[in-house]
C-alpha cells in the first residue's frame, strides 16, 4: 500500500517541516518514505509545497499525479491541489485562513482552526503541528509515538521544551478530529 500526501501553504507556515515530520514518523514506524519539496528562489512569503509518500513497499516515483491526501494551509493551495486530489480523497484545511469550502463534493474535508489553537497554546508558529496532529488522527498513517520520536530527532540540538510544545500542539490537533 502506497499513500501520497501533498502539503501546501505560504512560505513560513511550516509546511516543509510538517512534511518532514510526517515522513520521519512514518520511517520510525518502519515504512518507506520519500519527501520531495517544491523548491524555488522564495525563502519567505511565497507559496511552498512538498509531497510525502509513505508505503510498506519500495517507493518508485516520488512524484504523484493525484495524491490521496492534501493539506492546504491557504486558499491558493486549496484551489490548486483539490483539482488533482484522488476521487473520494481527504483534504485538511487550515480554516483560520481558508474561509471557504472546496468545490468538489466527493472529498472528505477536515477543517482545522490551526492558528487559533496555536495561539491558545501560546505560540503562533506551531500551527503546522496542530494541523499535523489532525492529519495523523484523520488518516491513521502515523502514530503519536513515532511523531514524538521525529520531533525529538528534529529538535535534537535544541531544548526539550520545544519538543514538548510541538507535541502538545500535535495532541491538541488530534483532539479536533473525532470519529
Amino acid at each position: 500500500m502506497i499513500k501520497s500526501i501533498v502539503i501546501a501553504g505560504f512560505g513560513g507556515q511550516g509546511v516543509m517541516l510538517m512534511g518532514k515530520i510526517i515522513a520521519e514518523a512514518a520511517m520510525f514506524d518502519g515504512l518507506n518514505v520519500t519527501w520531495l519539496p517544491s523548491y524555488g528562489p522564495e525563502m519567505r512569503g511565497g507559496t511552498a509545497n512538498c509531497t510525502v509518500i509513505i508505503g510498506d513497499e519500495p517507493i518508485g516515483s516520488p512524484v504523484v499525479d493525484s495524491p490521496d491526501v492534501v493539506i492546504a494551509m491557504n486558499i491558493p493551495s486549496m484551489m490548486k491541489f483539490e483539482e488533482i486530489l484522488k476521487k473520494d480523497g481527504t483534504i485538511l484545511l487550515n480554516s483560520s485562513v481558508i474561509d471557504r469550502a472546496p468545490s468538489r463534493k466527493d472529498l472528505k474535508v477536515y477543517k482545522i482552526d490551526a492558528n487559533k489553537i496555536a495561539d491558545t497554546i501560546g505560540n503562533a508558529k506551531i500551527l503546522n503541528m496542530v494541523t499535523l496532529g489532525a492529519f495523523a488522527k484523520a488518516t491513521g498513517f502515523i502514530k503519536i509515538e513515532a511523531i514524538g520520536k521525529a520531533l525529538e530527532e528534529t529538535f535534537a540540538n535544541r531544548n526539550k521544551k520545544l519538543v514538548d510544545l510541538n507535541l502538545q500542539a500535535v495532541e491538541n490537533g488530534m483532539k479536533l478530529v473525532t470519529d
Binding site: 520511517m27 518514505v33 519527501w35 520531495l36 523548491y39 516520488p62 512524484v63
Partner: peptide, 10 residues
C-alpha cells in the same frame, strides 16, 4: 538531478 539533490528519503 535536482530531485535527487533536494528530496529526502531514509
Amino acid at each position: 538531478d535536482g530531485m535527487i539533490g533536494q528530496m529526502m528519503e531514509p
